[in-house]
C-alpha cells in the first residue's frame, strides 16, 4: 500500500509538472492546475502503471464512485481497483 501511494503521488506530480515533494495525500487536484485533458491522461497513466481499468466517465461528477478531489482520493481509488481487479492492494 505504501508503494502504491508513493507511485500514485509520483504520477500525479509528473502530470502536474511539479516536484514529487509538492504532492501529498491532502493536495487538492484543483490546486495543481490540471487542465481538461490532464485528468484523463492521469487516469491512463495509472491504468498503465498498475494494469487496472478505472471506469471513469468525464460526463459524470461522481463516475463509478470515483471522486477525485484530493491526491488521497486517487490513491484510495487505485487501491480499491487493485484489490477488486488483481486481488492485491
Amino acid at each position: 500500500m505504501a508503494d502504491v501511494a508513493s507511485d500514485v503521488l509520483e504520477i500525479i506530480a509528473k502530470q502536474a509538472k511539479v516536484e514529487p515533494a509538492a504532492v501529498s495525500r491532502d493536495t487538492k487536484l484543483a490546486d495543481l492546475n490540471l487542465e481538461s485533458l490532464d485528468t484523463i491522461e492521469l487516469i491512463f497513466a495509472l491504468e498503465e502503471k498498475f494494469d487496472i481499468e478505472i471506469p471513469y466517465n468525464a460526463n459524470e461528477a461522481n463516475s463509478a464512485g470515483i471522486n477525485f478531489t484530493t491526491a488521497g482520493d486517487v490513491i484510495d481509488a487505485v487501491a480499491k481497483f487493485l484489490d477488486e481487479q488483481k486481488g492485491k492492494a
Binding site: I40, I43, F44, N57, N59
Partner: peptide, 20 residues
C-alpha cells in the same frame, strides 16, 4: 473510449442523466 466521453447506456442529449 480513451477520451472518457462515451455513454455506456445510450445518447441522451440535454437530459440531466446524460452520460456522453
Amino acid at each position: 473510449e480513451a477520451l472518457r466521453v462515451m455513454a455506456p447506456d445510450t445518447c441522451r442529449p440535454f437530459s440531466k442523466d446524460r452520460r456522453g
